[in-house]
Design a protein around this nucleic acid. Structure first.
Length: 274
DNA sequence: CGGTGCCTGCTG
DNA sequence: CAGCAGGCACCG
């Protein structure tokens, strides 16, 4: 479900609720979500720990806990984290609950059950959760045109597949890949190593501008996405190609195209993107 | 690299 | 009823 802007919005909203709170209890009712230990051990380890701060890396949420442990959550397609009063009925597909005093809960719902939870000592969590192998953060100073050019010059795959590869740039998913390629005028099936310097600059600019704007608008809510208090985002109103199958290009009125690239539904303007 | 599986629910 | 869904790991 969520890509970098959505996970960042969830991080911000949860921070305001959870920072400094102590986990009074934990219930896991879908044990397979906990990837690196038995669910019973997970619940026992979490109880009594305080949430110091909440971070993000790519599409991963990172909860720094007291006494040297870190909790990592990946929402995959349909995971949601919502903080609310304990007496509000729990929605369907609630698989993990963290309890706080007085009478508040963090609920994890996940219709498709693809999510992933990890708990480990601070020094091990990166390797355990796979965060160590992520590529550059696209909104960090380390993400430069030169660096993007170097990475893409080594890739023989299609540019869309490369953008979706979390080991190269972290946090881009299907929506922002399609939108960035449209904004940069690049066809999603172009071989990554063949982009011109002008195209590299346009793609770098488009990625940073889109992700920044999408965070400002608190994410894109096409289907399931909501933030930590259940609020939808607003970036869907600014989508130029994603999900606009049968629509016309907003720049040139050409009918938009839908292809499958890298196994994913892909939206583009065949006139503007070459 | 492409193809498939993981799951459930919604849409046409 | 088939097809599709904002992700990712695994297979050959």
């Amino acid at each position: 479900m969520p890509e970098l802007p959505e996970v960042e919005t969830i991080r911000q909203s949860l921070t305001s609720y959870l920072q400094g709170l102590t986990i009074e209890g934990c219930q896991v009712t879908l044990p397979k979500l906990v990837k690196n230990m038995a669910a019973d051990d997970f619940m026992a380890q979490l109880k009594g720990r305080t949430i110091r701060e909440i971070g993000r890396r790519g599409k991963y949420l990172i909860f720094k806990l007291s006494r040297g442990y870190t909790l990592v959550v990946h929402l995959r397609m349909t995971g949601q984290l919502r903080f609310c009063a304990s007496d509000v009925p729990r929605p369907a597909h609630t698989h993990v609950v963290l309890e706080f005093s007085p009478d508040k809960e963090l609920r994890y719902t996940d219709t498709r059950q693809f999510g992933a939870w990890f708990l480990a000592p601070d020094g091990e969590i990166g390797r355990v959760a796979g965060i160590d192998r992520l590529g550059v953060e696209p909104l960090s100073p380390e993400f430069t045109v030169e660096q993007l050019g170097t990475m893409l010059s080594l890739r023989r795959g299609k540019i869309k597949a490369v953008l979706l590869n979390q080991h190269i740039v972290a946090g881009i998913g299907n929506i922002y890949a399609d939108e960035a390629l449209f904004a940069a005028g690049i066809h999603p099936e172009r071989v990554a190593s063949t982009l011109t310097p002008r195209e590299l600059a346009a793609l770098h600019f488009a990625l940073q501008a889109l992700l920044t704007r999408a965070i400002e608008l608190r994410g894109t809510s096409v289907r399931d996405y909501v933030d930590g208090s259940g609020l939808r985002g607003n970036f869907q109103t600014e989508l130029k190609v994603y999900g606009r199958t049968d629509g016309l290009c907003r720049l040139c009125d050409t009918p938009l195209l839908r292809l499958v690239v890298a196994g994913r539904s892909t939206h583009l303007c065949p006139h503007c993107q070459i």
